[in-house]
Amino acid sequence: MTFTLLARLAAPLQSWGAVSRFSHRDTHSRPTKSAVIGMCAAALGHDRTELLGPLADIRFAVRADRPGTPVRDYHTVGAGTYPVRPRDIITDHRRAAALSASLEAATGPSFGHHPLSNWYGAPKKISSDPASGTLISAELSRTALITERWYLADASFVAALEHPDRSLLDSIAHALEHPKRLLWLGRKSCPPSGTIAGAVQAAALEEALTATALLPDATDSRPWAWIESPQSTTGTTPITDQPVSFHPDQRSHTNRWEYRTRISPEPTATKWDVIQ
């Protein structure tokens, strides 16, 4: 007999990187197996250096009840000029003496002694430009580093984890609601919202997804689902998100196979008890 645990993955923002590199951080259209297994390992309190053990043998599927909307977060890092920092003036007596008259005229005689003055700051690794005297980025040599990060906004998924050991799935379900480490949906800036774990069912992935009602905010009555299956199954395609190791120095993944299908929950499907 096999058992399946369903997990609700919902949040204002999610990001499931698949081929992210350096300044470009993409997101897959749905949660990856590597990220979900990693979240389960974090909930259980596992260290990244530990072997995956039975977690590696879990069969995985995901149903997109609310696919969400891709959004881009655009960044520029470094370069440009910065204003003179009040903190620098306070700590640099020579600069303070040279500017004392203008400072007192602009701020009054007590400038630099008010507790709020310590709140002032500026970006790190900047230096004075010999030509203009303004502060510039020393590390990036005046050239801005452009980065972009992609997210899914307002998405809700149902991840299914199948394994013959019910006690393993029960421990994961408890851990997801009482995690030993912080959880996030693909990126640290994306914490999950509301209830995560559903009930463990005595059923395979396909049966469990069909026997469980759509999430309350679902946008499609017949959502798409991606179900892990043997390579010999008709219609399967490879995806490189089967975790082998999460060790910081030996992180690696390999291929697994999945097929895409529509899911039509039964009229008597079990409702989600979602606590927001």
Score class of each variant (00 low, 15 high):
Ala175Leu: 07
Ser29Ile: 12
Pro86Glu: 06
Gly112Met: 05
Leu214Thr: 02
Asp170Val: 13
Ala197Met: 09
Ile275Cys: 12
Leu6Gln: 04
Asp217Lys: 12
His253Tyr: 13
Asp217Arg: 13
Leu215Glu: 02
Thr76Asn: 07
Leu55Thr: 12
Gly112Cys: 06
Gly68Phe: 00
Arg149Val: 15
Ala106Gly: 07
Ser189Val: 07
Trp150Tyr: 15
Pro179Trp: 02
Gln201Lys: 09
Asn255Phe: 06
Ala203Glu: 02
Glu162Arg: 11
His174Glu: 14
Ile263Cys: 02
Ala208Gly: 02
Gly198His: 01
Leu103Ser: 03
Lys124Asp: 15
Glu207Gly: 03
Ser229Ile: 05
Arg262Val: 05
Gln242His: 12
Gly186Tyr: 01
Glu207Lys: 13
His253Met: 12
Val274Pro: 00
Ala18His: 09
Arg87Met: 10
Pro115Leu: 13
Ser232Trp: 11
Ser171Val: 12
His46Arg: 15
Leu52Arg: 14
Phe3Ala: 07
Ser171Thr: 15
Thr147Cys: 11
Ser137Lys: 02
Thr32Phe: 00
Pro70Gly: 10
Pro248His: 09
Asp57Ile: 11
Ala96His: 10
Thr268Ser: 15
Leu13Thr: 06
Trp257His: 11
Leu215Met: 08
Ala173Ile: 05
Pro192Ser: 03
Ala56Met: 09
Leu52Glu: 09
Arg262Ala: 05
Trp224Phe: 05
Asp220Asn: 09
Leu182Ser: 15
Gly108Gln: 10
Arg181Asp: 07
Glu50Leu: 12
Ser29Asn: 11
Ala61Pro: 04
Pro86Gly: 06
Ser100Gly: 06
Thr254His: 07
Thr2Trp: 09
Ile126Gln: 04
Ala96Gln: 14
Ala122Ile: 10
Gln231Pro: 07
His46Glu: 01
Ser141Met: 12
Leu168Cys: 03
Ser245Gln: 11
Thr81Ser: 05
Gly198Trp: 01
Ile263His: 00
Leu161Val: 12
Trp119Met: 13
Ser127Gln: 15
Thr237Lys: 14
Thr254Trp: 07
Ser171Gln: 15
Ala203Trp: 06
Leu140Arg: 06
Pro179Gln: 03
Tyr120Gln: 12
Leu168Asp: 00
Arg25Ala: 11
Pro191Asp: 12
Asn118Val: 10
Leu52Asp: 08
Leu145Lys: 13
Ile126Thr: 03
Pro67Gln: 06
His163Asn: 11
Ile89His: 03
Phe246Glu: 00
Pro67Asn: 06
Ser252Asp: 11
Ser232Tyr: 09
Ala159Tyr: 09
Leu182Lys: 14
